[in-house]
Amino acid sequence: MPVSSVQMARVLHDSLNDESNKNEVVRLFLEFCEEKKLTHLLPNIVKHLEKINAKKIADNTIRVYVARNQDKDVVDMIVDFVSKKSDAPISVHKDEKIIGGFVALYRNTVYDGSVTKQLSRAKEILSV
C-alpha cells in the first residue's frame, strides 16, 4: 500500500510528543525511511510537519481581539479568564468593529465580551 507524506508527517508528529526520546524517534524514523526506500518523501514530510506544527501552535494560541490598545494587565486578566492554568502563547489583535470589551478565541471556543455583543443582546430584549 502506498504511503503518503501527510500520513508519515502525522505519525512522526504524534511520536514526537514524548520529550525524553525525541532523538531516538527521529533516528528510527530515518532508518525506516531508508529501509522502505521512502527517503524521496522527506522534503514533503518536513513541509507537512511544519504545517501540522503551525496548526497546533495556532490552535493552542489564545487570540485576543480588542478595540484599542490595552495594558498588559488587562490582557493578562482576559487570558486568565479564558484559561487559568495555561502557558499557551498569546496574540493580541486590534478590531475596532467590536467597539469595546474583548473577544478571545482559544481551542475552538469564542469568548465574546464585546460591546457589539452586549448591544445586540440589548436590541433583542427591546425588540421582543
Partner: peptide
Amino acid sequence: QLKTRLSDFDAQIETQEVG
C-alpha cells in the same frame, strides 16, 4: 418602559464553540 425592559439585562461574556 425601556428601563423596565432592560432591568433583566446583565452584561455577560458569551462562550460559543467554533470550527
